[in-house]
Amino acid sequence: MCGALSARVPQMRRTSLLLTAALVLAGCGGTANGGSNQGAGAGGTLTVFAAASLTDVFDSLGGRFRQEHPGVDLRISYGGSSSLAAAIVQGAPVDVFASANAAQMDVVAGEGLAGEPAVFAANVLEIAVPPGNPAGITGLADFAREELTLAVCAPEVPCGAAAEEVFAAAGVAARPDTQEEDVRSALLKAELGEVDAALVYASDVDSRGTLVEGIAFPEAERAVNDYPICTLADAPNPGAAQAFVDLVLSEEGQRVLADAGFRTP
C-alpha cells in the first residue's frame, strides 16, 4: 500500500518527513479507476466498460461471447458509470460502454465518442432488508423513521439521484444514516445486517439470492433507470464490439437480463 514504504524510515529528515506525510495523505485518499490498458485491434482484444450493477449479467453473457468468438480476448471492466465515463473521456481504449444511466452515456456522447446508444435494460429501486426483515420494513415510508438504521446511495451517484426522485414523489422525508458511494456498498450493509434497510436496485437484490430480501414499492415507477449501451467511435476493435452489443440486445441477452431482475424494453 502507499504508506508502507515511508513507514519503514523512522528517523527521516524533517523536510522529507513533511513531504512524505503530505504525499501519503494526498495519495491514499481516493481510488482511481483505471481501465485495462491493453493494446487491442489486430490481436483481437475486446474491452468492455460496464456499470457495476451489470456484473453478473455481463459475466454470464461474456462466457457465452467467448464460446461464440474463441479468437477474441474479451476483457470486461466493471465500475461506477461515472468513473467509467470519465476514463473513456480521458482516452481509455474501450470498445463498448454499458452505462447504468443516460446521464453518463451523455457525458461520453457529448465528447463525440459514443456510437449510437441503444437502451437494453431498465432498473427500478427496491428496498433491500436483511433476511427475515428484523425491523419489519413495509415500504418507503419507513425511511422516515428516525430509530432505524438506513442506507441510501449518495445523491452524486445514479441510484442516489433515483432515491431522491422516489422520496420526492412519495412525499417521504428520508432520514438515512449513510449515503453510500455506490449501490453495491449500500447492499453490502443490508447483507451484513448493519442497516435495517437499504434503497438499491431490484436487480441488485436478485443478485444476492437469499442473503437479502427485496421489498418492492409503487413509487419506484417514478424513477425508472434506463441502461444504454453503445460501441465507441474510437473502438480499437469495432467488429467484435458490434458483435457484443448485438449479443446484449439479442433475445438471449434480454432473457439473461430479465432473469437477473432487470426490465427489458
Partner: peptide, 19 residues
Amino acid sequence: LCWARALGEFGATITFAGN
C-alpha cells in the same frame, strides 16, 4: 505520519462509518 494517513483515510471510513 499517523495523522497524515488518518487525514487521507478513505476506504475503511466509507465502509465502516458510511457517508
